[in-house]
Amino acid sequence: MLAIKYARATVLFLIITLMLISCHGDDSRILITDNLPETKPEYQRMIVGHLSGEYELADETRMRSRWSEEERTLAASYLRQLLEQLNIEPQEHSYTAPNLNPAIDLILDPFKGTNIYGILPATGESDEYIILGAHYDTGKRNAPGAIDNATGIALIYSVVKELSKVQTRNKHLLIVFFDQEEEELIGSKAFVKFIQEKSWKTHSVHCFDMVGWDGDGDRAMEIFTASETLRNIYAETAKEHDIPLKEIIIDPVGYDASSTDFDVFVPAGYNVIGAGECFYHRDSSPYKDSPKDTFETVNFEYLLSCSNMIEDVIKTLASP
């Protein structure tokens, strides 16, 4: 009789285990077909279209927003597969962050999220990393987030895809898609602690947020940094591309801004630059954090122009 009970318990355990494995397997469903389009304009449109719900994913679902925990989980799965398109092994950096007031943790769960990252290794010996980062969450429920910030993700993908073709890269490229930028920069704050614990030697950090609006048609980009070296490289490359550059010089002493992922790297002492459309110079999407931040509002010619410029900047830094 005892043997029968033991056998039943074993069968029950196996059934539950298989059910859990099956449930976990939903996270790995195919969201991107075998290959994205080969040309840069086409794959940038596809990526922004996927992330903003304009195009169906491979499983015939749509990513309407990236705000709730479930939506961000789906977006993270998509981004892992996006890195795989680049033959880069995707990694998860899962974190837990306490509420601003510790007493609130007794009532509400602490913040939890997942940064997705991967590394395109240098072609030779190197201990230096260039970090390219963009957030993937959206600011409100039902906000498609086409410009904010699917465009930043599409830009990074195109830069890394082109850099992967370069024969000599003297630095590793670390690509990271931050979770919960829209919630007090929780994801990027956690990632700064993560790379500090790893003791990775960081050459520079480049953050891209909103790269899809050019209302006056001048193709201008905005940069903000405390680094004269990075500012000069961006300025020289922008001149070569005939792109006006709007510069905001940051004073790192006492810096405490908290509006985009760039901000968390400044007080941490990193050589960091932020870039995108002219948010502080009043030529930026008026649809940020709203249901109107859709695929149709993206200026893809502008996104392509900015991507080509940033690609040359990173080539200069990675392959001197």
Rank of each mutant, 00 (worst) to 15 (best):
D179I: 02
L79D: 00
P98V: 06
A76L: 02
S126V: 00
V266K: 00
E42W: 08
V160A: 04
Y255F: 13
I233R: 09
R282T: 13
R282V: 13
A75F: 07
G49I: 06
R80N: 09
R45S: 08
S307M: 09
I47C: 05
I153F: 07
I107Q: 08
G269Q: 04
I88P: 02
V272N: 01
A268C: 06
R80C: 09
A268F: 06
A146E: 04
L303S: 07
P110K: 07
K171W: 01
N142G: 08
M221C: 15
T225M: 12
S28F: 15
T123P: 00
W67P: 00
Q167C: 09
I233F: 03
R141P: 03
F224C: 09
G124I: 07
N35H: 15
R141Q: 13
D218Q: 11
G49M: 07
L230A: 03
D242N: 13
N308Y: 06
Y287G: 04
A238R: 00
G139Q: 06
L106N: 10
L83E: 02
L245I: 14
K140A: 15
Y78W: 12
E38R: 12
I175L: 11
D26Y: 13
P41G: 07
D105K: 03
E42V: 11
D293A: 04
L317R: 05
F262H: 09
V166I: 14
V192S: 04
S65D: 14
E125R: 02
M19D: 11
T168Q: 15
D216S: 09
T260F: 13
S290P: 07
L82G: 00
E56A: 15
N99M: 10
E301H: 12
